[in-house]
Amino acid sequence: MDPLVDAALQQLMSSVAQVLLGKGEEVRLALCCLLAGGHLLIEDRPGMGKSTLAEALARGSALDFKRVSFTSDLLPADLTGINVFDARTAEFRFQPGPLFSQVLLADEINRASARTQSALLEAMAVGRVSVDGTSHLLPQPFFVIATQNSMDQVGTSPLPEAQLDRFLMRISLGFPSRDAERALLAEGALDVSMLGACIDPVGLQEWQRRCQQQHCSEKLIGYALDLVVASRRGAHGLSPRASQGLIAAAKAWSLLQGRDHVRIDDVQSVFPAVAEHRLDAGVPGGAEQPLSQVLLRSVDALP
């Protein structure tokens, strides 16, 4: 349909959407996050298909996938890997942890201790892990999908604001619609293990590069700035990293729409996912209506 969007990308989107029935919008946001080179936080109850989404994205783009369940006794070393003493050679040998993968599903991230969380988030930010003074480069592309369940607060350490900022987007899968669930019950969704690769990692990186080259007009930058400035009147303003992320996500979204330039609609589409977790400080559902929606309504979109 769109000459710009490669058939492979279109196919990836549709096949992941077949695995997660009725979640087209969320799949698109997750793919957009992947293209923008950001990391994704999924806020949801168990059993909504979080790990399915992560695995489908990984399989679809032929990426190496690992899953770590974050528990309270998980140590940073469990994640990054450790230097193990090899008695035969009388030398330390680096044994890489699960962080050394291309798609990492960090399940229930809020159950781990603050130290373990920050080890993960640091690796996300710099793309590199440092163990006992030696740094080890992470593979590229590196995409973290973290999940947390904010309903379940007992014995958890919620991500602090500064760490939330490192996630480009937060989405929530939620219950499927009635029609989607009917289809699920009647025919069943495509099994994730049946999913073939639609795009190779090199192709994905090419798309990430093209995504950065999307054109942003003066007016659009102005609109994004208006949004960010408006957010700073409240308790938790959007950081410069957030505004960069907003533009990057909007660029990826416009690419998925098959355009070569970004429009205000693209910014509006990704804004709730990009901004909401930074505005409510990680406590969703605090206000009667999402703060990002209030902001979107308060800024004139007809410059």
Binding site: L75, A77, D78, I82, N83, V84, F85, F92
Partner: peptide, 12 residues
């Protein structure tokens, strides 16, 4: 017990 908890520096 998990290896990550071992005091490897002491072992050395």
């Amino acid at each position: 017990e998990r290896q990550a908890l071992v005091d490897w520096a002491g072992v050395a």
